[in-house]
Simulated assay, not measured.
Amino acid sequence: MKLQKREKAYLLLADGVIFEGTAIGKKGTRGGEICFNTGMTGYQEIYSDPSYYGQIIVNTNSHIGNYGTIETEQESDGAKISGIVVNDYSYLFSRKTAEGSLQEYLEKNGVVGIADIDTRMLVRHIRNKGAMNAIISSELSGQELENELEKVPSMDGLELSSLVSTKEPYYEGEESSQIRAAVLDLGIKKNILRSLSSRGVYCKVFPAKTSFEEMQKWGADGYFISNGPGDPAAMPYAVETVTKILEQNIPLFGICLGHQIMAIACGISTYKMHHGHRGLNHPIKNVESGLSEITSQNHGFAINEKDVENSELVEATHIHLNDKTIAGIKVKGKKAFCVQYHPESSPGPHDSRYLFDQFIDLIKESKK
């Protein structure tokens, strides 16, 4: 591959801190909330995860791009992030099965990036100051850059799921399957659908703003509420749908944003975290079994711990061992549960896969 000419780029944070580095990816200017992911691998899965829509990702692993990209590692139809920040960027790749370079991938998907940044210092700054808006540009500097940054909307109160959700319903799995699950797509990852279909579930995936009445017409045995981007408190349409599913007491499983939406439907409030959880090494304790799990996480909002403690409707099933945030709940007297992490991912590697089996067992039990 022909080596690229190194051009200057700038990263400006909302608190005024500015970094100078090298432009990578598509040349241009993009803004969004800046956050960091501690995963050692899986950059393509991160970039194509709809939950990251509108965010600038700082990869804490120092070398990014060295194993290229491949279609099978896509979690959606393309990159969903606004931009990336890396330390040592590789235009060359050495994985034999790779289909292209990360540079080609970023250019194709319109992702603006910056390299040669002291990401260790940047991450420490975000950890101290909290997640904030930022902007990357290989075109602008000075006052022009500041002016563009002011136009970037705050993630707090921002509804984004309808922007990344499917526009039309579609199916996943074998139509002859005995189990049917209606999936509300708030920004779903492909591997979640694979995890369901590989267990014999036939899924119909619905757009984010589909009503319960419309989903119900398909005659599903259970309902799944997906992950996705944005502030859960800005999604009354999804809360209404989940509330009606709970009223029917049909088996229901939610992941990440789906977890937050289910909590709101049960009277639990949510809040924006200081800098969120994003990485492949988050320790979770299942308080029912006493076992721990190493999990993949990606969220900037959490459900209120005090609300859960005082609730008569839900109880905590999983706790994050680093900061004691609620990582899972179940609804008392209902066939409904949810978690604030990604059991379809493989950091454990299979510590959390039992949750899909638990959902299917609920459906089978309900069908008897």
Results as ranks from 00 to 15, higher is better:
2 K>F: 05
8 K>Y: 01
12 L>H: 09
15 D>S: 12
18 I>W: 05
21 G>Q: 00
21 G>T: 04
21 G>A: 04
21 G>D: 05
25 G>I: 14
27 K>P: 02
28 G>Y: 11
32 G>L: 01
40 M>H: 09
44 Q>R: 04
53 Y>T: 00
54 G>L: 01
57 I>D: 01
58 V>F: 01
59 N>R: 11
65 G>K: 12
67 Y>E: 07
68 G>E: 13
69 T>H: 07
70 I>S: 13
70 I>F: 08
73 E>G: 08
73 E>V: 11
82 S>T: 00
84 I>Q: 02
87 N>F: 01
91 Y>M: 00
95 R>Q: 14
97 T>P: 00
100 G>S: 08
100 G>M: 09
105 Y>L: 05
112 V>F: 07
113 G>T: 13
117 I>H: 04
118 D>G: 09
119 T>K: 04
120 R>Q: 14
127 R>G: 08
128 N>W: 03
134 A>E: 06
135 I>W: 06
137 S>I: 11
137 S>Y: 14
138 S>Q: 00
138 S>F: 08
146 E>M: 08
147 N>F: 07
152 V>N: 05
160 L>K: 05
161 S>G: 10
166 T>P: 03
168 E>H: 03
170 Y>Q: 00
188 I>P: 01
194 R>M: 10
202 Y>R: 09
207 P>S: 14
208 A>N: 13
213 E>G: 12
218 W>K: 03
218 W>I: 15
222 G>L: 11
224 F>T: 11
224 F>M: 15
225 I>P: 06
226 S>Q: 08
230 G>L: 05
232 P>F: 01
239 V>L: 09
241 T>W: 14
243 T>V: 02
246 L>R: 06
247 E>Y: 10
250 I>Y: 06
252 L>V: 10
253 F>C: 11
265 A>E: 09
267 G>F: 02
267 G>M: 06
270 T>Y: 06
272 K>W: 03
273 M>V: 00
273 M>S: 09
278 R>T: 06
279 G>C: 05
282 H>A: 01
284 I>H: 11
290 G>E: 06
295 T>H: 08
297 Q>A: 13
306 K>H: 10
319 I>C: 04
323 D>S: 08
325 T>Y: 12
328 G>V: 15
328 G>R: 15
331 V>E: 04
332 K>Q: 02
336 A>W: 04
356 F>R: 01
356 F>T: 00
357 D>P: 00
358 Q>T: 11
359 F>A: 05
361 D>C: 08
365 E>W: 07
368 K>F: 07
